[in-house]
Design a binder for these strands. Structure first.
Lengths: 268, 268
DNA sequence: GCATGAGTTCCAAATAATGGAATGCATGTT
DNA sequence: AACATGCATTCCATTATTTGGAACTCATGC
């Protein structure tokens, strides 16, 4: 089964594959320019970032606009992502049963802990949030659906790796090792201890590995939900908690929330 | 300015345009198969729905998987939208300043009215939701970000048309007229009265034009926010309200919420 | 063990993408 | 007001890529 984990192929192996459709890839690369970069770009900027020529970019942006994936600012003639990309995400969200069965418990725990709870899945080598819930009266900003997190530095990333089938986990690890050697060097031992934590307690804890002022616990969902491998996290300001609270209170509470959701979903 | 409203071109004029990149378009058409249709499809199914041949679809799906826009179920060998599409939506959401400045007032009003409040913008000839807020203890389901609504049947659609520049509104109307002749026939007069309502009171009201058991008020945002033309709605079960409450209480409250947000955003 | 259905590979034909050069358009400058 | 600059688009010949029929492989079920 050659075609199985195309999303984990190395860039060069991917684009050299006989099945690779380069024009489609170019168009998608244009879209990617707007993710995690400038929010508006002209054809010139896109050409520079993608290595495509200006006429080519012009045709691609034209086509992407027709599908509603790009829009253009009348004033500046610059492009931005269009609302059409949101409707692509809708089926992914609405089909995710976990969001409904766990919603009220997530809100309750988020209130109690005074920090947001998120559900994440994997997009290539990153975590992407598919749901976030936050109580009222917290001053922390709620991370948006679709935002991404590094896999190795975060609690949810480590829990998410744990959630994968051993076979997939192996492929994933080896890709991370080659794609992010310095991250791997720095965090692979912490990944191992996270796995041990999860084995013994059901959750893993991270303090300040990603953001110096954040502490988090995370729990893997033990079977795929609607085909997606999932994990949940609960984050709080580092100054507002300590290891004891994380390990005695927040971690176990998040575990029981997840076990309960798994039960409701019939994953048992 | 030939390139301005490509998103409102008719299908035939779009695909015949010399700037049209057909391979990219084919790939995007494959993605669209998963929006508002079956959630999982095999290459065969995609080939049938798109009119492309199986080998072609195979290459396109391969490429889309590499970008994380499609994933594949190991068991059934069927494709589904991948988590990567969510990260495309993130910049659109996070850059939308309105979501932040209006969040707490939206929640308050949603609690009061016992119905969800949504922010919508336009994707081609539809409304697409960019934000939804719902109070606790309502039994209505909260519409998801990225879900779409018809333009002519809904209060938010009519308010959104109102929010457009007259010039754009004209183009939009004429495209709706030709693309949805029966809808236009049935609702264009209601569109006119909605405009009149908005002119005099700031909001428009719809009862049961879209869903027989839903009533809604909607308010246009009077200037684009981050380049997006917006409108807000508030929906409640039809049995739980009446025209008087909509016109005396909910409508005016939503108007003042929107005027307040516009002020905070400096749109004045 | 065989038939069926789906996905992929192969390859030659043809279509569509590509990029350098020229053109058009708008903005800001002297 | 005329000009210069920068960017987007158009044009078109070349080239590379896409394309789809046919063959092949694999899995499933009878």
């Amino acid at each position: 089964m050659d075609q199985d984990s195309v999303d984990l192929l190395e860039e060069s192996a991917f684009s050299a594959h006989p099945q690779f459709a380069s024009t489609l890839a170019h168009g998608l690369t244009v879209l990617k320019c707007f993710v995690g970069g400038a929010s508006t770009l002209g054809n010139k900027d896109i050409a520079e970032r993608t290595g495509l020529t200006r006429p080519t970019v012009s045709r691609l942006t034209f086509t992407l606009m027709g599908f509603g994936f790009l829009r253009r600012d009348r004033k500046t003639n610059q492009y931005a992502l269009g609302p059409g990309v949101l409707s692509l995400g809708y089926p992914v969200l609405s089909q995710l049963a976990l969001r409904h069965v766990a919603a009220s418990e997530m809100l309750e725990l988020a209130q109690f802990a005074r920090g947001p709870i998120s559900v994440g899945t994997r997009d290539r080598l990153q975590v992407v949030y598919v749901e976030t819930v936050q109580g009222r009266d917290t001053n922390s900003t709620k991370p948006d659906i679709g935002s991404t997190r590094p896999m190795l530095r975060t609690a949810i990333g480590r829990a998410l790796m744990y959630a994968h089938h051993p076979e997939d986990r192996k492929i994933l690890s080896s890709r991370l090792k080659t794609a992010q050697p310095e991250e791997w060097e720095q965090f692979s031992s912490k990944l191992e201890s996270a796995f041990a934590e999860i084995d013994s307690m059901g959750f893993c804890t991270v303090i300040a590995d990603w953001r110096p002022n954040l502490a988090a616990v995370a729990v893997p969902v033990l079977a795929p939900v609607n085909g997606l491998t999932l994990a949940l996290n609960l984050t709080v300001p580092a100054y507002a908690t300590d290891r004891a609270q994380l390990e005695k209170s927040l971690g176990p509470r998040l575990v029981s929330l997840v076990r309960n959701a798994e039960y409701k979903l019939g994953l048992v």
